[in-house]
Write a protein that binds this DNA or RNA. Structure first.
Lengths: 204, 204
DNA sequence: AAAATCACAAACCCGTTAGTCGGTAATATT
DNA sequence: AATATTACCGACTAACGGGTTTGTGATTTT
């Protein structure tokens, strides 16, 4: 009973540190020893808990990344208010998180997709599926917005959703180098501008 | 004289193959031997021409990537026509190139930025500078467009430029997995939509 | 209390990879 | 013709990284 708790605790520590380093330095560029050194643990400990480095990474995706995507990117846009406002706030939050050098998990996803593309189909599938979940939820939020008269009925919700995701992933990429605050500010302005264009037209 | 030509030819071959593999598999994930095997050359040949793997990569950036960024992303938007049209066509071209699995060099840049971020400041500087060149040229094209009455005078050209780059890099990232054609089509639609919003208002 | 299991440590194996170095055939220079 | 330089070969080294294995103290089960 106590044993199981210890097991979970150690695994969790490894996963948290692993995600941190994989995200900073890349998966292939981070050795298992790098992670273990930070935790004062040994190879034996690692291979006692995980089958392989790849298996370890997948467990990180399942236990840490997917949940965070839900809480940071999906739950905040659920509700019956104007989805364009909800999305605006959600993006703002995510970019501010990013600015403080914490992980916003949308970028984490695209970062890893970049690295694993063409190398590891299984991991790519996980990443892709997770991104898809975000997209699907954006689309349905927009459609609800259409129904409730917040979004113009002529807009292509799929198109808007992937445009939102694209621009977010792109700006996030630019923010790693260069003045993050200025980029965020400008990005939010243009996003709002774009949203005004797809909002329900108030014909006078 | 003849010798120098041979030298250049060999170096060029190595650079072309190097870029191809680095782009496909990543820099750290591609060994020098991988490149040499494809060319039937030896380690000796490589280190005769280049100081190190890093030095080799920088030479690729200078000789191949920067030039391509100019010819594919910058020259097409120079001119006195409506910059929004020029940019639209340029993005369309780039995405079509990407769809045929050829390199569009904007994405090549962001791809490598992703990989080298936090690892190699010198290479990051090269990449960042190149991206900056693209951005600066976008801004000045937009400003000229303002002057010539194509772009609304209230728009923030810097903001628009980085929004364009962001969304492009983002959609390019999404295109590596998933249906590229559909994504391109939707992206272009939303981009045009956005451009209509920042175009000169024709007050009736 | 004895036996079994857990959670790890530490040394080791082995493939890979950046970089070195001594050689050499072809070409250019004197 | 003798010498020097160029462009390259291929064997080698040292370090690293993923994974294995053996061992061991602490804890749990019987």
């Amino acid at each position: 009973m106590e044993k199981n708790l210890k097991r979970m605790a150690t695994m969790h520590k490894m996963q948290v540190t692993g995600l941190e380093l994989f995200y900073k330095q890349g998966f292939y560029n981070t050795s298992i020893d790098d992670i273990l050194k930070q935790l004062d643990l040994s190879k034996g400990a690692f291979y006692y808990h995980f089958k392989s480095k790849e298996d370890f990474f997948i467990s990180i995706l399942q236990n840490l990344v997917v949940r965070k995507v839900y809480s940071m990117l999906i739950e905040p846009i659920e509700g019956h208010d104007n989805p364009l406002d909800l999305i605006t706030n959600c993006m703002e939050e995510a970019l501010q998180t990013a600015e403080h050098n914490e992980n916003d998990y949308g970028f984490v996803l695209s970062n890893f997709m970049n690295e694993f593309n063409g190398k590891n189909p299984e991991i790519m599938k996980y990443l892709n599926d997770t991104l898809k979940i975000w997209e699907v939820n954006l689309v349905s939020a927009l459609q609800k917005g259409k129904f409730n008269g917040y979004v113009d009925r002529h807009v292509d919700c799929e198109g808007v959703a992937s445009y939102i995701i694209s621009s977010f992933l792109g700006i996030r990429m630019l923010m790693v180098e260069g003045s993050a605050t200025a980029l965020r500010y400008r990005y939010m302005q243009q996003l709002k501008f774009y949203f005004r264009a797809i909002a329900q037209k108030q014909t006078a």
